[in-house]
Structures are given as structure tokens and as C-alpha cells.
Design a protein around this nucleic acid. Structure first.
Length: 462
RNA sequence: GGCGGCGUGGCCGAGCGGUUAGGCAGGGGCCUGCAAAGCCCCGUACUCCGGUUCGAAUCCGGACGCCGCCUCCA
């Protein structure tokens, strides 16, 4: 039984699956007009972990995440750079997938692009116009939120109080300041699509409803995204589904944001760091470990200090992998490995991790249990019980792998020169020629190796 | 103004009424020719003020501080 915090009910509750053996989940993806930033990294990591965990549990997961490839920001950038919207979208979508590959986020089963679903959006908007749920203004078609009785469910506030807080805007044609654009009328120099109610392009909120329902069907299981998407984006998606009489997501889950200093990292504050920058100087697995070590609903601070902290934790894990020569598991592949088996895993450890991850994806506790098991495996090995130690170590490796974190024993080819130095040093040590042994170690260190002694002789790694 | 969240040891970060979170850093010890890795031990924390309780970091009330959403944002 998987339990997750549900935004609408404001509590952790059991994930009720439409089909007992399957999970259908939709995660709002990026608008591709700039490099992916740390916030994108966090939400993709969080939901990647959830997906991998569901898969590990034997559930058949359909994971859909969109690409918004038409939007004001894309148009602005294209104009600024004298290129086309398509070019901008393609360029940044490529950057997106590069970054996803780097942080080991598995590719969704489906990646709908907004521009491919315009027909469906036009149909939906026509339906709303006929029912007077939508109305026309001079700049586009708007959705009348008063037609949805429980509007405000995700915001956690009733319509009236939302209206009271709404900012004054220039468009006084709207029936309510909360009404949102379903369709923006064509302007010269902007891409547009034909529609019976006037050529134009879709509004952001319309895209996701059409794509999620289109690919996952009515009453799909889980809709996820960052906290800041609750309102208005998710509220408005839901409003449209409700207004069209269709059952929407049964469960809503939102991840916490990334903090920079004391503030949320956001576009309006301009304080975002690109994932690309981070990955240039950091082992991507450190970011995953950092994400796993805090709860997905809490804000996390991503700074050079917290990243460095995670990197040192990772060194310990890799050192563990080296000691037991553990295989590299989940990896950078965009496939979700579902071929882990429970067979051979330490039953105690498995039970602990299951209990923790099934309870609102409590990765910090799962990670703590794995670090405990790591110490235990080391102790067993120190005491000479290699067999038990290796079994436990393999379990630790598999369970980190189930969360998409791969321990890395070694990736370094040892060149002939270094091999000779290692062997010379072992000879010197066997002759108790410490001065020579130390000199050879220094030489290896100068070549960039970390040198460690083991019962079987000198071991080196980068 | 409305709504939501947070305040934990040097740092990060769990915790949902009583029992060791965990990581990183630091100190001591074991092991080791030395170093590294590993193992063991150690800090004994919970913003403040009241209250409930045999017992509160954990529940209730209040104060202070911080953050977010209500506008594009993951």
C-alpha cells in the first residue's frame, strides 16, 4: 500500500489506483525557452524517484510529462534572437534531455508536446463556448471560473477569498480577475493555429488537461508538480476537466521548491542556477543524494556547501562499492530498470525501506536505514564474515538503485605505467622497504590516484 | 488582507507523546609500517512563554522570526 500526501485533502492518504497493478502519473514538464535550472532538477528527481519506486514495487507505471513548446517566453526569445519559436523550443528541449540524462532521470513513457495537441484544445474550447463556460474578449477566449462550484480546492481557498486577493489587472473585459486565458488571439509575427472562434494559440493551462486526459484517460491516478503550480495552473487544469464533465486526477502531489539563500529560487527573482552549470562541476549523483536526504515536500537549500556535503557522502558510498566490488546499477540510462528482484535482498532492510518509502516517500529515513546497513556490512566484513557482508552490501546497492542512485565502484582504466607502480609498491612493501613504498605512493598520487592499501595489496582509484 | 508551511545539536536534515534518526564536519580509540579506507565511542539539540499529560521537539494557546501561494514560475 502506497501512501502519499494529497494536496486537496491536505493529508497523507492511500494512493487509490484506477487499476490495481498500474500507476498512471502526469508530471507537468518544462516550458523550453531557457536552460533547465536547479528547480527543474529537483522536481524531475523527486518524481523520477517516485516512479522508480512504484516500478520497483512491481507496478506498471505510465509516466507522462509534457514539453510546453509554445508560450510567451518562447516567442519573446525568438524575437529577441531573430530566430523562430520552433528553433528556440528545439534548442532548449535538447538541453533539457541532455540534463535529464546527466542526472539519471528516466525518460517519460510519453512526452506530449503542446503544439501537437492544439486540435484537442480547440475542440475543448469550442465546447466551453457553447456552454457559456468560456467567453470571448478582444484578446482571446477566457474561462469563467464561477462555473466551477468548487474552484479553489487546490489553492485551499474558496473563490471569494481568492477574488479578494487577486491583483488588479488592465483587462477589464474579464468577468472576474480570476478568469484565465484558454486561447490567445493571433498577433502578427506570432505563430498561430486555426480555430472556429478565431486563429490563435493555446493558453498554458489548457495544454496540460488535454494532454493528460488524452494520454492517461479519465480518472488517472496521480498528478504531480512543484508546489507553485498548485495555483493557478493545476487549479485551472482541474477546473477545465470538471467543467467538461470528465474525471480528472484522483490524487495530487506537490514537491517543495529549491531555496537559494533564504529565498525561493524563481524566475521572477532571477536567482536561478542552471542545472547545466551545476553538472559541469559536480557529480550529478550528489544532487540526487541531496534530494533523497530531505523530504520531497520540504524546501531544500542547494548551495556549494550542501552540494559538497552530499559529494562527501557519495564518496563514502563509492568507497563502499569499491570494497565489495558492487555492480553499477541504475545508471545514466533513460530506462527505468524494473528487473530488480526481491530475491536475495536482506528481508529486514527491504522491509524497512519499503515501509519508509511507502509512507509518503520518506526517502530521508530510507537513506538513513541504508547508511546503517552500510556500516553493518562493513562491520561484518571487518569481522571476517565476507559472505553475510556481501549479501548485505548487495542489498544496499540494490535499494539505492531502486531510488535511482547508483554506487560507483570504479570507472577508471588503470594505465600500464600506474600498474607497474602499483606492483613495484607491493614488492617494496613485502620487503618492508617503507621509504621506497612511500615514494611510489607519492608518484601514484601525483598521477592523480587515490591510493589505499587492502589485504590484497595496493588499490588505486581516481 | 486571505490561505498554507517552517523555526531541531557546528552545518545539512528526519521525527507525529515515552526508546540511537542519518549524513557531513570535529574529538578520542582500534586496525595499519605510515597514510587512506573501515570499525567503536563522544556532542546529548529541538525559537520563546504558558497549558494539557505521570511524561512534549512531538498535542493546545499565545509571542517572535522566516518562507511560500494569492501574477509568469517546477
Amino acid at each position: 500500500m502506497i501512501r502519499l500526501f494529497d494536496t486537496i485533502h491536505g493529508e497523507v492518504r492511500e494512493l487509490q489506483l484506477r487499476d490495481a497493478a498500474k500507476v498512471s502519473m502526469y508530471v507537468c514538464g518544462p516550458t523550453v525557452y531557457d536552460l533547465p535550472h536547479l528547480g527543474h532538477g529537483r522536481f524531475t528527481l523527486v518524481w523520477d524517484v517516485a516512479r522508480r519506486w512504484f516500478t520497483f514495487q512491481g507496478l506498471d507505471v505510465t509516466f507522462v510529462s509534457n514539453i510546453t513548446d509554445i508560450d510567451d517566453n518562447i516567442i519573446n526569445r525568438a524575437n529577441r534572437e531573430g530566430t523562430t519559436e520552433e528553433d528556440v523550443a528545439n534548442t532548449y528541449e535538447n538541453h533539457w534531455w541532455d540534463a535529464m540524462r546527466s542526472i539519471g532521470v528516466a525518460r517519460p513513457n510519453e512526452v506530449p508536446h503542446a503544439t501537437q495537441y492544439v486540435d484537442g484544445m480547440v475542440t475543448l474550447i469550442s465546447e466551453f463556448l457553447e456552454k457559456d463556460i468560456a467567453y470571448s474578449c478582444s484578446d482571446g477566449i477566457y474561462f469563467d471560473v464561477s462555473r466551477v462550484p468548487d474552484y479553489g480546492l487546490l489553492a485551499g481557498q474558496p473563490l471569494d477569498s481568492l477574488r479578494a486577493g487577486a491583483r488588479i489587472e488592465a483587462n477589464d473585459e474579464k468577468r472576474s480577475p480570476l478568469d484565465f486565458a484558454l486561447w490567445k488571439n493571433a498577433k502578427s509575427g506570432e505563430p498561430s493555429w486555426p480555430a472556429p472562434f478565431g486563429d490563435g494559440r493555446p493558453g498554458w493551462h489548457t495544454e496540460c488537461v488535454v494532454m493528460s486526459l488524452g494520454l492517461l484517460g479519465d480518472g488517472f491516478d496521480l498528478h504531480c508538480g512543484g508546489f507553485d503550480l498548485k495555483f493557478p495552473h493545476h487549479e485551472n487544469e482541474r477546473a477545465q476537466a470538471v467543467a467538461s464533465g470528465r474525471a480528472f486526477a484522483k490524487h495530487w502531489s506537490h514537491n517543495g521548491w529549491v531555496m537559494v539563500g533564504e529565498e525561493k529560487m524563481s524566475k521572477s527573482l532571477g536567482n536561478f542556477t542552471s542545472l547545466t552549470d551545476l553538472l559541469e562541476k559536480t557529480d550529478a549523483r550528489a544532487y540526487r543524494l541531496l534530494v533523497l536526504r530531505s523530504h520531497y515536500r520540504s524546501p531544500i537549500e542547494v548551495s556549494p556547501a550542501t552540494i559538497a556535503d552530499a559529494e562527501r557522502g557519495l564518496e563514502r558510498l563509492d568507497s563502499f562499492a569499491r570494497r565489495f566490488n558492487l555492480p553499477y546499477l541504475a545508471g545514466d540510462s533513460l530506462e527505468v530498470k524494473s528487473n530488480f528482484t526481491f530475491e536475495g535482498l536482506s528481508a529486514d532492510l527491504l522491509a524497512q525501506v519499503c515501509a519508509q518509502l511507502d509512507d509518503d516517500l520518506n526517502t530521508p529515513l530510507a537513506v538513513a536505514a541504508l547508511f546503517d546497513a552500510l556500516s553493518e556490512a562493513n562491520s561484518l566484513a571487518d569481522s571476517g564474515d565476507e559472505f553475510s557482508a556481501l549479501a548485505l552490501a548487495s542489498s544496499v546497492n540494490a535499494l539505492f538503485g531502486s531510488m535511482g542512485l547508483s554506487l560507483l565502484a570504479s570507472s577508471d582504466e588503470v594505465d600500464e605505467t600506474s600498474k607497474a607502480l602499483v606492483s613495484a609498491r607491493d614488492t617494496a612493501r613485502s620487503e618492508k622497504n617503507w621509504a621506497e613504498a612511500d615514494r611510489l605512493r607519492d608518484e601514484l598520487v601525483n598521477l592523480g590516484w587515490v591510493v589505499e592499501d587492502s589485504p590484497s595489496g595496493t588499490q588505486i582509484h581516481k
